[in-house]
Design a protein around this nucleic acid. Structure first.
Length: 655
RNA sequence: GCCCCCGUAGCUCAGUGGAUAGAGCAUCCGCCUUCUAAGCGGUCGGUCGUGGGUUCGAUUCCUACCGGGGGCGCCA
């Protein structure tokens, strides 16, 4: 059984998949099975090299190939081709049911040609058993992180409408959460809200001191965006106005009831708007955490004392940081003036953002010795998140948050330095393990192409390649607006408004997810709203087509028989389906959503290819062929649907 | 100055020690009485920024440069 031999067929003709672990792994992923086999064979030859197995470069070579003999040549001091022959013989000696033939090609590859009737059946069976309620096992070589992973994302300042930069953050964080959950990780998703910062204070100044008012029908978050821009403009004209901002910030810090209740009302309304925006993209949170609660509940006070007592932070007596509590860099623990020294408490006694972030990070790991109060954010919504609170504790919310074993902070790459400070603080407090498990999931920003910047009225005479988004200067594409435009683009061809919205949201998500995190997204309207080619619409369309076939070709319940020789397109589709677990594992362990978008597009492409280049299944008269081809489509649809949902996209049966 | 990211086809991006470097868009030419043409096929297009090095093998690793972006705040 460990070789994949034997085992009775189920009534459907499908091999049972739930027995011993070895069989399970074999059933789930052809490549892993081959890696195992190559590994054993290499061991038998005494070749201590990696058992690399990759898709064959050309169809003539077979399905899978290993270049291991090339690497082994040095270790064994023999000709690669000889080693390849030995490896082939070794592999042929312990036959795998999966493999029809092992061959050798120069300069030293060993290739496997699969037994179509066997591997196709296994791949289809595994795909049809995908169940949203059952975590997907990682293939050999990938390991699941232990314990709970806490993912913080979105964290948009609650003083303006969310724009595409914030949306990129949210899509990445949400997808990482989904990918981790899909692979059996325990996940908590927090949205951290900075309700004590400068940006909020600016809007308070705009409304209270400048008397700015919403226009008729203007959404509140958009009104705040407008105020924010206007206040920033006024600061430039009359810098004295910035004193008002300082007063607001002190009011917040002191807990001045007049200021705090105003801020509370303001930020709660904006957060509601953010949640509504994100919900359109199917993005939700377990917990909203408020920076003000970190102060009010004494988290920062506690963290401060620990940091102070451990010597991690010191009070600068003189120099440019005189009167501040600072964290000096590694190797200069007493130097309060070094360039890399970070101020955590300002000379006026106010903690900086990073200081509060340290306290929050400690809470995430359960290291602060305190907890928030909790209540349901919006009891009128069934799937409302929970929010932290400083006093209104609800007994209906058991405090099961935090206490993570791993923390993933989705924060743009520009904040690498403060994130390092947070990590360093944990380390200085002796929390090595937690410091090592603090992951800054850095992603690059969204910027505007000159064309997009021009559309927004930005002066592009500088001739730059890209132009930065700026909420403060009103240079932005609001998340809601982009989605509205995408819906508009799709509406005509979609069957109804609801479908148009789902497909549009998926398209926008896909666009923001398909780039590597290290890549700046050069935002362009035409590109973002395109509906052909490598887009979310294409993926969903492929899924809908597959669904259409299954609707028209009923399952006859007969035994699945795989033809002895598959068509090249069928083979290509099966290889893609077979690769799902690996792609998912790669995305999960690498915290890399784009791995999954790339995979999903390739899978959808292979399905479209199949669709276009094989006769319509509805008209197939041979029941055996019809059944096989239907199962192939069903397996592909199941896999694509799983991938789409894991990406946070809808899998519509019709568009 | 120090640190980080990017540089691959006209444009936007995948790929990353292995056998002839891929996709989408754009161009041009085709394919709807056929399971949804938001599709498919073809065409055009590359000294993988440059020079050294390591290796049987480098777009991938090292190194030095060049170009672009970002960070190094008592902002976040």
């Amino acid at each position: 059984m460990a070789n994949g031999h034997g085992g009775a067929l189920s009534p459907l003709g499908l091999r049972p998949c739930t027995t011993v672990a070895g069989t399970l792994a074999r059933m789930l992923d052809v490549r892993s099975a081959l890696v195992d086999a190559v590994r054993s064979a290499l061991d038998a030859l005494g070749a201590r090299v990696d058992a690399v197995v990759e898709p064959s470069a050309r169809p003539e070579f077979g399905d899978w190939s290993t270049p291991a003999p090339l690497a082994a040549a040095r270790v064994l001091r023999r000709a690669p081709l000889q080693i390849a022959e030995d490896l082939r013989a070794q592999l042929a000696n312990a036959p795998l049911e999966l493999v029809r033939e092992w061959t050798v090609t120069p300069p030293g590859y060993v290739n496997a040609t699969l037994q179509d009737g066997v591997w196709a059946r296994q791949v289809i069976a595994a795909a049809l058993q995908l169940d949203p309620g059952v975590a997907i096992e990682l293939p050999a070589g990938y390991s699941r992180a232990a314990g709970k992973t806490l993912v913080e994302h979105t964290a948009t300042n609650p003083n303006k409408a969310a724009h595409i930069g914030h949306l990129r953050n949210a899509c990445i964080g949400d997808t990482v959460g989904r990918v981790l959950r899909r692979t059996g990780h325990q996940v908590e998703v927090d949205n951290y809200i900075d309700d004590t910062g400068v940006q909020v204070a600016d809007v308070v100044v705009g409304i209270r001191d400048l008397g700015l008012k919403p226009e008729e029908g203007e959404p509140f978050d958009q009104f705040c965006s407008r105020v924010y821009v206007e206040v920033s403009r006024r600061y430039e004209a009359t810098p004295e106005l910035q004193h008002r901002r300082a007063e607001v910030l002190h009011g917040i810090e002191r807990g001045d009831p007049d200021v705090t209740s105003f801020v509370r009302d303001l930020t709660h309304r904006v957060v509601d708007a953010h949640l509504a925006t994100m919900r359109r993209f199917d993005i939700e949170y377990d917990l909203l955490t408020w920076e003000s609660d970190i102060i009010t509940l004494g988290f920062w006070r506690q963290a401060f004392e620990l940091l102070r007592d451990s010597g991690a932070i010191v009070l600068a007596e003189q120099g440019k940081h005189a009167g501040c509590w600072v964290m000096p860099p590694e190797g200069a623990e007493q130097d309060t003036d070094d360039d890399e020294t970070k101020v955590l408490v300002k000379s006026d006694g106010v903690a900086t953002y990073t200081a509060k972030d340290i306290a929050y990070q400690m809470w995430k790991f359960g290291l602060i010795g305190r907890d928030f109060h909790y209540r349901v954010w919006d009891a009128s919504t069934p799937d409302s998140p929970v929010t932290t609170a400083s006093h209104e504790h609800s007994d209906e919310v058991p405090p099961h948050f935090g206490h993570a074993q791993r923390v993933v902070n989705v924060i743009d790459a520009r904040q690498a330095y403060p994130q390092q400070i947070v990590q360093r603080a944990l380390r200085r407090l002796g929390h090595e393990r937690e410091a090592d498990s603090s992951i800054h999931l850095a992603y690059e920003v969204v910027a505007l192409t000159p064309a997009a910047a021009g559309v927004l009225g930005v002066d592009v005479s500088a001739g730059r390649e890209l132009y930065a988004l700026s909420g403060r200067h009103g240079i932005e594409v609001r998340a809601d607006d982009l989605l509205d435009r995408a819906v508009e683009r799709i509406r005509d061809k979609a069957r109804d408004a609801q479908t148009a919205l789902l497909v549009a949201a998926g398209a926008v998500r896909y666009y923001l997810l398909r780039f590597s995190l290290t890549q700046i997204i050069a935002f362009d309207f035409d590109e973002a709203l395109r509906v052909t080619g490598d887009t979310g619409v294409y993926l969903q369309y492929a899924y809908a087509r597959a669904s259409g076939i299954l609707r028209k070709v009923p399952d006859d319940g007969g035994e699945l028989v795989v033809p002895d020789s598959l068509q090249p397109v069928e083979r290509a589709v099966l290889h893609r389906v077979d690769g799902y677990r690996r792609a998912l594992a790669e995305a999960a362990t690498g915290l890399a959503p784009s791995v999954l978008t790339t995979y999903a597009f390739a899978l959808a492409s292979s399905l479209s290819d199949f669709y276009e280049h094989t006769p319509a299944i509805v008209r197939e008269t041979d029941p055996v062929v019809r059944r096989f081809r239907r199962a192939l489509v069903a397996a592909t649809r199941a896999t694509l649907g799983d991938a789409l949902r894991t990406l946070g996209m809808a899998a519509p049966n019709q568009i």
